[in-house]
Design a protein around this nucleic acid. Structure first.
Lengths: 630, 630
DNA sequence: TTGTCGGCGCCTTGCCGACAA
DNA sequence: TTGTCGGCAAGGCGCCGACAA
């Protein structure tokens, strides 16, 4: 990759980055969080080769470059930081820490811009683009309405300065603004799909600019990204399933036409762990360094303006406290607020970073939503009142820890709702103070530890899934839980309808993280959210297995044939019967029974499973033998 | 790039590599030529950081991996070599140097295979593939001729093991074999264009395999590759021009659909110079090393079996000797022979590699044609009888030197025919023993030094262009010529018709290599083959320049306006008048006057020029200030 | 106001035999 | 024997207004 390093218009950059993204000004002071930088790399960064590094390092901003990926158009920046020495935080002067906000540089005027999330119709192959009236009238060049129909050619420059031409027409009854000719070329070239956003911006010199913000892609999002958004239920299984199929087909198309390297639109690997190590080492030794920051990467900022850090450090967060967080509806530039109650306070990684305030500040912009509001549009029925509960679905990876915390709290208190799945009943037996109520939610058995905290959501149910396993957790996990709080947090909420698909992914992720001993196998029904654990070592044949599964799920044994697939430790997906039972017994790690009735559904889920199988292979490098299946 | 490193079927590998490619057997002995390795990298490799390295190093072959590029399907191999110490060549035992030939491994049976160069119709979007009868009947599965029409699905595996399905039908009047459904998908996926070849092979296990051999792409082929083939004249200017345009349009299409990285189908940069340095250093120090070898890269082998080297070293090549070389018609597996007379013998790089036999052996497979016969198909009218003269057009890069040589010969003797161009008349004045006959060939003045050597070709005229410049050659060149032979060889033949375009490219290349002092500028007419040198420092204005040019070429001065373009030292292409004359005078390196009459021609040539301008930028890294223009 | 749909025309894709090299 | 061409049909692409949320 050549370092063209051509800084683009900061206004366009900010428009693409999103309204909540702020960049520190040159010569301002910021705190650099190596931990946050590591999270930004979205892979595990092993700091063990370095001496202990401070959790946060005060730096002066030497330079900021506004850049865009030449392939994906994703905006990112390179920030040069000069450490200011290892003085006590209290002694420091935080005054001149100006921040370049959404309005770009020192110019207080926000340029006229408009963002729209692409609908299916917008992204369809045979279609045009429905231009919202506001955009057409305030951003686009003035149309001559005396013509019939009024039509013009709109010329827009992208982040690379490349020029795109669109036919802009005002037609139909009732009249509406549309981009027709040229639009589908743009969609194809930029490989846009429904859910991605497009930003139109009228620059100061009058040029019309166009930028894109890609939706977080990939079904395995929750698997790939520690802070990834778990799309979850919402508008029903079928609609989501259909959408994921669409994505896959698109992706295939894209992959066939482009090199494998070019197909990676979803990020990851943009910041390499070596870069983090290098930066952290330089920072700790007081030498200038440069970091790349991808504002769309859904991880919290790791260069936070010094005054904000200082202000937030004054607050002692503890569970039970109410809090309020700003986030922006990206396509309309309004600020929305989310209010909630702090559920748990916990140091993210007490071994490596003791007393680190990282993600404690979830105020000083760690509280910012890493995911953009546009993601919420997957839920077509979404209403403002649902935001809080949706936010709770934000997937808090146990590895990267909880977002809200102090250091001396019982984390079992104030949890909204514990939905225990899989083999976690073992945990419950250990924590003797929990009450067990079994009830059905959307037809699925749910075990709660506490009643719903009404403060989170007024008309929906929110649950927190405990993903913790007891004795069979892997080494990594043991370390992480060693602070004794005894509960790995992971939140999931189903606001209106439950989606088995969504849940299964989630569970797949958890299983990935937890791992299982040989002989034990997770079993899932395609249509159900809840998995069970089965000890294969007590079984002697496929017939016995099928009988057992038939009993377990109350279905006909004959229906089992050709409907049970599993993944083995190597990641291969097989059907029962593919290999001798003795081999199956040893290697099967996750087993899924497909619905017998709907053949359509089977096809779809099978493909989904294959997809996750790929992700599973990746993940296995990190956590050893595992099994994922949706 | 991940090292999948999955060795593919050696038979398929050899079928794709071409019939002339031989790979050394494991445990056999070969000589490793660092010089050849460097040429293989196709960029300048600077050995100056290393101590002096032997010109050839005897090695044992540790391992051979047969691989294929995951993106382009280009076959290559990795050869592990273990140096056998620095003993005197004469003392060595060359016995067990078995070679894996085209028939693959030790198996003496050559598998049934067939290669065909794609015609326009084959590569057209809306078309199928005309299967030569031989291929259909001996390679494809047997067709049921009782059906009407006979039809079957042919399934073939590519180098990655990926399966492709083609509808194979025998229809039409007269009957012919065709691949229809599935073919265009294959063409698109593999990004094949007319001129590329496809190889069908029936493997030993009965599987049908399909491989591809890409034609050397890009108009600047002769510029990019030291041993590149100069397509030259042939079936008229317009047909060639048309074809090159076609290539360009195809390329654009490809580029739009694929990432920039994926667009590089033409090679270059496959072997990085660092790898060469590393290998050479390890080889010199007697440590095992690995080299990658791209048999389609058109550079001579640099791992040559030891016995062949030894045998050839016995021969004292000198000019005037007759020689005979084998090469294969790749699509029919016949061996053809080329016979010629040695024109000049010269050490390739006497400073860096004194007494190196590199390219002394263009016998021991250095004489092999680096280019495939398929390149000759650009000349549609090509007949077997023309091969010799066509071969003479093979572009012998002065840098990489002449292929046939000894060290004590007057290189001015026995030259087939010297066509002196540009400012080389100065040379002639220095070599007082040459006779000067001026005559016209295809309307161009030609100065011969000797009569045509009839032995080269019976019905065509062959010439050797002397590309030598006198006092204005650059440092690099001076070094190269320092052995005193005083003649840089470059051969060019126009068998039937002359193409100004072809000639111009050739000249462009020569000018590149030779370089010019500041102030001196090469001047070319678009329609002419012959360039002149102009001392810009004696001119004072654009007007004076135009007047001078008008005189020089006998055209109207007014016609000059807007028809003179030039390239400066940075590689930029400009029109006269774009910058102040004083700047122009200092930087212009090559100047071209376009035909005024035919606007069509101008357009075409302009595009060609731009293309070459790009190549010029690359080349400038190697030779300093230069000027290329076609 | 704008997202989605069916209608429909145009243009590309791709299969065919004719024809000629 | 096989390369190229025009014919032609199918189907995808893409523009349109209708309709409804």
């Amino acid at each position: 990759m050549k370092e063209a390093e051509k800084s683009l218009d900061p206004q366009l950059w900010h428009a693409c980055a999103g309204g909540m993204v702020q960049m520190p000004q040159v010569n301002s002071k910021v705190f650099y969080f190596p931990q946050g930088h590591a999270e930004h790399a979205q892979v595990h960064v092993d700091f063990s080769s370095l001496p202990r590094i401070p959790a946060l390092i005060l730096c002066r901003v030497g330079a900021v470059k506004f850049l865009a990926d030449p392939e994906t158009d994703e905006v990112f920046s390179k920030i040069r930081l000069i450490p200011l020495g290892n003085r006590n935080i209290g002694e420091l002067d935080f005054e001149d820490d100006g921040v370049v906000g959404a309005n770009g540089s020192e110019n207080p005027e926000k340029p006229a811009s408009f963002a729209k999330t692409l609908t299916q119709s917008d992204a369809n192959n045979g279609g045009g683009f429905s231009v919202p009236r506001y955009c057409a009238e305030t951003i686009f060049p003035r149309l001559d309405y005396t013509a019939d129909p009024p039509v013009q050619t709109v010329i827009a420059k992208d982040v690379h300065g490349e020029v795109w031409k669109f036919r802009h027409i005002y037609r139909g009854t009732p009249r509406r603004h549309l981009l027709t000719t040229g639009w589908s070329t743009f969609v194809n070239q930029k490989k846009l799909v429904a859910g991605d956003s497009i930003v139109f911006l009228r620059a100061e010199n009058g040029d019309l600019c166009v930028g894109i913000r890609r939706a977080k892609r990939g079904i395995g999002g929750a698997l790939e990204s520690p802070s990834g958004w778990n799309p979850g239920p919402g508008n029903s299984v079928s609609s989501y399933g259909g959408f994921s199929m669409f994505l896959r087909e698109q992706e295939n198309k894209v992959m066939r036409n482009s090199s494998p390297a070019g197909g990676n639109l979803s990020g990851k690997g943009k910041v390499r762990p070596e870069s983090v190590i290098e930066a952290a080492a330089l920072a700790a030794s007081g030498q200038p360094f440069e970091v790349a920051y991808y504002p769309r990467a859904s991880t919290p900022e790791f260069c936070v303006k010094a005054s904000a850090v200082k202000a937030t450090m004054r607050t002692q967060w503890c569970s039970g406290m109410r809090f309020k967080m700003a986030f922006e509806t990206e396509d309309s530039s309004r600020i929305s607020w989310f209010m909630g109650t702090i559920a748990s306070v916990q140091v993210a990684d007490p071994l490596r970073w003791p007393n680190s305030p990282w993600r404690l500040l979830q105020g000083a912009r760690h509280a910012q939503f890493g995911i953009s509001l546009s993601d919420l549009h997957f839920n077509n029925k979404l209403q403002p009142g649902l935001f809080p509960s949706n936010f709770q679905r934000y997937n808090m990876n146990p590895r990267t820890s909880n977002s809200i915390m102090t250091s001396n709290t019982n984390s079992n208190e104030n949890l909204s709702c514990l939905l225990t799945i899989g083999n976690s009943s073992q945990n419950l037996e250990k924590s003797d103070n929990v009450k067990r109520h079994q009830f059905l939610l959307f037809g699925q058995p749910i075990i709660t530890e506490q009643q719903i905290s009404r403060s989170c959501s007024s008309d929906t149910v929110s649950q927190v899934l405990t993903g913790k396993s007891s004795s069979d957790e892997n080494q990594d996990k043991v370390k992480f839980l060693s602070d004794g709080s005894g509960s790995t947090l992971d939140q999931q909420v189903s606001p209106e309808k439950s989606s088995s698909t969504g849940f299964s992914w989630h569970q797949g992720f958890q299983t990935t993280e937890l791992g299982l001993d040989t002989g034990h196998c997770k079993v899932f029904m395609e249509s159900e959210d809840v998995g069970r654990t089965l000890d294969l070592s007590v079984l002697g044949s496929y017939e016995e297995l099928h009988r057992r599964l038939a009993n377990m799920f109350g279905i006909e044994r004959s229906d089992m044939l050709n409907h049970v697939v599993y993944r083995d430790a190597t990641g291969a997906v097989k059907q029962t019967g593919d290999e001798p039972f003795s081999d199956f017994m040893k290697t099967a790690k996750r087993l899924t029974i497909f619905n017998v009735s709907s053949s359509n559904n089977i096809g779809r889920t099978w493909i989904t499973g294959m997809r996750n199988a790929e992700n599973g292979l990746d993940a296995s490098n990190k956590t050893g033998p595992l099994s994922i299946f949706a």
